[in-house]
Amino acid sequence: MNNIFQVIQVNSALIILVLIILVILLLLAQFILYRRFKEVSRRYKLLTRGPNGADLEQILQQYAGDVKKLEKGEEELRVQQERLKEQVAECVHNLGLVRFNAFDNMGSDLSFSLAMLDRRGDGVVLTGLYGRDETRLYAKPIRKGTSDYSLTQEEIKAVQISLEKI
């Protein structure tokens, strides 16, 4: 143990010099780390501060609210789309027209049968019979491609033409 104290006494100046250099290096490292921390801290503050001075939490809350509004708007649009699909299904989509000569003594195909049906096959068939002195128009309801009233061959053909287009 005495030997250790003698070595320390003989080399005390060298040991102090090494310790001073070590302290200086530690202080230099501390200074470098402090500057890097300040730079990272400055960047973090810039990141968390949004436009108008809002912090990151406020920005995220605002975005979450915006997403909820968009989801609500999307649901409203989906409901409206379903309503429109139902309305479109009830609209007249396809026409079936057959022109014919109702009377043998007439020269042209001036009579007609016009089927106006929706996608379900519901609608009406109109038949116009042209004669020299008068024209008569008849309407017969159509449900799912058929009618409770008797249909002429021309009316049946007009309904078939309309149903083929559906």
Rank of each mutant, 00 (worst) to 15 (best):
E82Y: 08
V125A: 01
V23Q: 06
Q80F: 12
V10K: 15
Y63C: 06
Q80H: 14
Y138F: 15
A102F: 01
L17Q: 15
D133G: 11
P141S: 06
L14V: 06
S12Q: 03
V40P: 00
V79E: 15
D148M: 08
N3E: 13
L60W: 07
Y149T: 09
R99I: 01
G123L: 05
V10Q: 13
K69H: 14
L97F: 00
N105W: 15
F112K: 05
E39N: 04
K85Q: 15
T127A: 01
G53A: 11
A29E: 06
D109H: 07
I166T: 06
S113K: 02
Q160D: 08
V7K: 08
A115E: 06
A158R: 00
A64L: 11
L28D: 07
L97S: 01
Y63V: 09
L137A: 09
S147T: 01
V10F: 10
E154K: 01
L84Q: 09
F31Q: 04
V88I: 14
S108E: 12
V88A: 09
S12E: 03
S162L: 00
R136W: 06
Y138V: 12
Y149M: 10
Y44T: 09
S150M: 15
K165G: 07
N105V: 12
S41R: 07
V98M: 02
L27W: 05
F112G: 00
E76V: 10
T146A: 12
N105T: 14
V79A: 14
T127L: 05
E164R: 07
N11K: 14
G65P: 05
Y34I: 04
R43V: 08
A29W: 04
G121F: 01
L114F: 06
E74I: 15
S150I: 10
L95E: 04
V92R: 00
G131Q: 12
S111I: 00
V67M: 12
M106P: 04
L114Q: 02
N94T: 09
E154H: 02
S41H: 07
V18D: 12
K85Y: 15
Q9E: 15
R43S: 08
V125T: 04
L26P: 01
E39S: 10
K144E: 08
Q9C: 13
E39M: 04
L33M: 05
E90Y: 05
E155A: 03
G53H: 14
I32V: 03
K144D: 07
F31H: 00
T152D: 01
G123A: 03
Q81V: 14
Q30P: 04
Q160A: 08
E74S: 13
L56F: 10
N2W: 11
